[in-house]
């Protein structure tokens, strides 16, 4: 089967006083109808990778790739018009923090309906939005439609944002740390909603997170990134068989409720991993 998204040798560089710095250095992967996790520490380039797929690399940076194809469309030289027809409608992105990613002076309803209207379906915008809010298990969708982002809790805001991104029924959803700002119990609820929607609608999901344990229990396949490179790719179910010392180190350095290792094993970084 032809993959939905294929990325080959993706590189992203930002200028600095010492010359361009590459934050993503040759990332390649194919994505089918599956849940792919991208894990790494802050600064490993995982978020920039996600942003580049949507053409959202900051203007100061440059993204290049040997191949960047989404369902037969070459994204490298896509025109603004092509991007408009893709973003939102066919691929969309859930950001980390609802406090910073929702428009603070627009009601949730207005923001939701804006997405529907832009991608066709003006007349049923309101019904569609309400149905979507119900799908993300918001109990009182009418109230939430009329509410401003600051009137909602973090978990509610994040659900509203997921609703906003899914209301156009995209083929690919990129979730950049969608639950990191939430409490553990709310986090699991939001993930369950995301999981159901992805399964029901046959969507592809790229799940970007720093939490290796969470990703390995949620996704089908995991890419581990270190300093802009993919150092390991493995099936989530076979996490315990990870062979790269970085992945092993990340797995071991987490404190556990059942284990009692004192002191905790510390991750010893090796310059050889950079190559």
């Amino acid at each position: 089967m032809k993959p939905l998204l294929s990325v080959e040798n993706l590189r992203i560089a930002f200028p600095s006083r010492q010359g361009p710095v590459e934050v993503v250095r040759g990332v390649s992967f194919n994505l089918g109808r599956e849940r792919l996790g991208i894990v790494g520490e802050s600064g490993s380039g995982k978020s920039q990778t996600g942003r580049a797929l949507l053409g959202l690399t900051p203007v100061s940076g440059t993204a290049t790739a040997d191949r960047l194809e989404f369902d037969g469309v070459d994204l490298r030289n896509a025109t603004a018009k092509q991007w408009r027809s893709l973003r939102g409608a066919r691929m969309s992105m859930v950001m980390q923090d609802p406090k910073f990613s929702l428009n603070p002076v627009m009601t949730i309803g207005k923001q939701l309906m804006e997405a529907v209207k832009l991608h066709g379906g003006k007349s049923e915008a309101r019904d569609k939005s309400l149905a979507m809010l119900e799908a993300v298990q918001i109990r009182d969708p009418d109230r939430v439609m009329a509410a401003y982002p600051h009137e909602l809790s973090g978990g509610m805001g994040q659900r509203a944002m997921i609703a906003m991104m899914l209301v156009t029924e995209p083929d690919l959803l990129i979730a950049d740390e969608p639950t990191s700002a939430l409490d553990v119990t709310v986090q699991i609820e939001v993930l369950r909603i995301l999981d159901n929607l992805v399964t029901q609608r046959g969507m592809s999901l790229i799940f970007i997170s720093h939490d290796l344990k969470l990703v390995s229990t949620f996704c089908d396949r995991v890419l581990v990134m270190y300093a802009g490179r993919v150092v390991e790719e493995l099936d989530a179910s076979r996490m315990s068989e990870a062979s790269h010392p970085y992945t092993r180190g990340l797995l071991n350095c987490l404190p556990t409720i059942t284990g009692d290792s004192r002191p905790l094993p510390v991750l010893a970084r090796d310059d050889a991993w950079l190559e």
Binding site: E41, S42, D211, L212, L254, P255, L264
Partner: peptide, 15 residues
């Protein structure tokens, strides 16, 4: 903090 840095800080506090 990141998970790997967290381990270092927790060890420091323990010591």
């Amino acid at each position: 903090l990141d998970a790997s840095i967290q381990a270092e800080v927790l060890n420091l506090l323990d010591r």
